[in-house]
């Protein structure tokens, strides 16, 4: 239940903020070094970092619970224990993947 609602919320965040950021990022790369420096400056700002870490988590959470939904669409994984374990795995997995990416990056910044 929780993971299903989170799937929807992370999806909405990725579809709006995530895609807006993707368009900005690609446009900045196309515009050249000055525009890209502006992008990285915003990204390295504390608010930018919170947004990026949040979207990274949303990406992995949505990806993993998306796999869960694809499995469930096939008719599998509806047993109460299996279903709950799979849901918990998506939460643990997204946390681990987000930390794996950002701990080295943030460690480098400090």
């Amino acid at each position: 239940m929780l993971v299903s609602i989170v799937h929807r919320m992370t999806g909405a965040a990725l579809a709006t903020a995530g895609l807006a950021l993707l368009v900005w990022w690609l446009t900045a790369i196309a515009d050249g070094t000055d525009a890209y420096a502006e992008f990285t400056r915003a990204a390295a700002h504390p608010i930018g970092l919170v947004v990026l870490v949040g979207l990274t988590w949303a990406f992995f959470q949505h990806l993993l619970s998306g796999i869960r939904h694809l499995v469930m669409d096939s008719g599998a994984g509806f047993e109460l224990e299996t279903n709950k374990r799979f849901a918990m795995l998506t939460l643990a997995g997204s946390l681990v993947l987000t930390l794996a990416i950002w701990v080295p990056v943030l460690g480098g910044l400090l």
């Binding site: 895609l19 807006a20 993707l22 368009v23 690609l26 446009t27 790369i29 196309a30």
Partner: peptide, 13 residues
């Protein structure tokens, strides 16, 4: 619109 903007940026790159 946004997808076109992104694809156009990719084309420019």
């Amino acid at each position: 619109g946004a997808a076109s903007l992104a694809l156009f940026a990719l084309g420019r790159i």
